[in-house]
Nucleic acid binder design. Structure first.
Length: 451
RNA sequence: GACCCGUUCGUCUAGUGGUUAGGACACCGCCCUUUCACGGCGGUAACACGAGUUCAAGUCUCGUACGGGUCGCCA
């Protein structure tokens, strides 16, 4: 049987890290097993669903590279893929239940009669979980009064206004779309017996279920929009690489059982399976997510790095067509974790005026004999013949020798004078990219303005 | 509150009865780089607690605690 998984977002907000990870696991499982990944839009709540939200979610999935085989924009033989367009299908399934006498009207809504029996979920992650809905549902906890109140355990499947409810449409569509594996958040584990009861009522064998642990914020509570790293579209603007985000999301709740931590999407596709999924919730760690991104940045082929970095370089007004850009990016990738950090590392190479960081200048300017040091540097570098890294280095060494100083004592001042800051890319390669003329100009400028 | 799920370094995790409990992020130290960083090496740091089963328990069982989830005419 061909594996068919689905991601079924409700277009009522942003694409959240939890949803994205669910999508990723479904995508990976389908791809790993040569199956199909279906995208279905659960927009039965007309009041809360918006097109803007849908666009954000679709864009997020596209950015992550989780392309779907069936769904909005691509079609498929089980469409339409928006639940709002599938009402006639739901009507048909409701008729089946009516015929069997399993539903009844209650204050305008339609309820499904829950059988008084145990339903056992055979979960690929959580194991066997049994529940009797009738027993469990005979009371309800009222959050305001904090008391148990009597409740009707029979589940509402249709609103008085005619709109169908999640549990019902979810099951009907999974049946209609031939979904074989339902991989979703553990928050649905307690709902699954309801779904099982519906599968039984329709006389259809349920799919394989896998409930994956939730991702929490560092405080151990539910991740909200305000938590760093919660919203997928922000990863893009903050300079993350999509594969790195996939990599980190995969790691929150799944392990390849060995020491490998850096995976491309294609590595994950090969390695991912339900057996590696954990049972316990995990807390999101933004710092590690950045580290993962940095590792991906280091491995990125030059042309891909260039393409991804361009928007950030342009925003910083760095000329992306400059012939030195490739070399500059290679310097930057060694020290940046995010694409957004690249401009600050390389900006000084392309700047017409050096921006001097006052703290850095402070550290250097008051040192004894600084004027001589910078003068020696200027003279030493002026005499360098071919402007190669090796010759620049020996030029600095010569300058050091001429004033009987250690080379190390010249590196820092040289860095500040030419780059404007104590931190940044490798000094010598930067000087090489700057060119002899510009380097000397900057040294002389620094000398006259600050010494 | 009832029911369900979970609990290994601060965090992500490896571990399926016998391990000096391993790795990664973070943190600290040393080295390298005659520069900031990268990198290399090393260090601090964990089996929630209590019983039981067993020659032997992080691994199995039960209880307790703690955390999370569900109990919608949201999904």
């Amino acid at each position: 049987m061909k594996v068919r998984t689905r991601f079924a977002p409700s277009p009522t907000g942003f694409l959240h890290i939890g949803g994205a990870r669910t999508a990723l696991y479904n995508w990976l499982y389908a791809r790993h097993h040569g199956g199909a990944f279906v995208l279905r839009v659960e927009d039965t709540d007309a009041e809360r669903s918006t097109k803007e939200s849908m666009d954000v979610i679709l864009d997020g999935l596209r950015w992550l590279g989780l392309e779907w085989d069936e769904g909005p924009g691509v079609g498929g033989e089980f469409g339409p893929y928006n639940q709002s367009e599938r009402v006639s299908i739901y009507d048909r399934y409701l008729a089946k239940l009516e015929e069997a006498g399993q539903v009844y009207e209650d204050e305008g809504a339609i309820r499904f009669r829950v059988p008084d029996k145990d339903y056992t979920v055979q979960d690929e992650v959580c194991g066997e979980v049994s529940t009797n809905l009738k027993e469990r549902g005979s009371t309800r906890f009222d959050a305001e009064t904090k008391q148990e109140v009597a409740a009707n355990p029979d589940i509402i499947i249709k609103r008085p206004n005619g709109g169908y409810i999640f549990h019902f449409v979810n099951v009907v569509d999974d049946i209609e779309m031939g979904i074989t594996h339902v991989i979703r958040g553990e928050d649905h584990l307690s709902n699954t017996p309801k779904h099982l009861a519906l599968y039984e009522a329709f006389d259809v064998a349920p799919p394989v279920f896998a409930h994956i642990p939730l991702n929490l914020n560092p405080n151990g509570t539910k991740m909200s929009k305000r938590d760093k790293g919660a919203l997928i579209h922000e990863y893009q603007s903050e300079g993350f690489i999509a594969d790195a985000v996939n990599n980190y999301m995969a790691l929150l709740g799944w392990s390849g059982k060995d020491d490998q931590e850096i995976f491309t999407l294609s590595d994950l596709k090969e390695r991912f399976d339900l057996g590696g999924v954990n049972k316990s919730n995990s807390k999101f760690d933004y710092t590690k997510c950045c580290w993962v991104n940095g590792e991906h940045l280091k491995k990125l082929p030059g042309d891909e790095l260039q393409a991804l970095a361009n928007p950030f370089l342009e925003a910083a007004e760095i000329p992306i067509k400059d012939p030195r850009i490739e070399a500059a990016l290679d310097l930057a990738r060694e020290r940046a974790q995010l694409l957004s950090e690249i401009p600050e590392v390389v900006a000084t190479i392309f700047a017409s005026e050096v921006e001097y960081d006052s703290d850095s200048v402070e550290k250097v300017v008051n040192r004894e004999g600084m004027k001589e040091v910078v003068t020696a540097l200027t003279n030493g570098l002026k005499t360098v013949g071919s402007w190669t890294e090796a010759d620049i280095k020996s030029g600095i060494a010569d300058a050091a020798a001429s004033i009987e100083a250690k080379m190390g004592a010249l590196m820092f001042p040289c860095r500040v004078a030419t780059m404007g800051s104590t931190s940044g890319a490798d000094l010598v390669p930067v000087l090489q990219l700057l060119g002899k003329e510009e380097t000397v100009k900057r040294l002389e400028g620094f000398s006259t303005n600050y010494l």
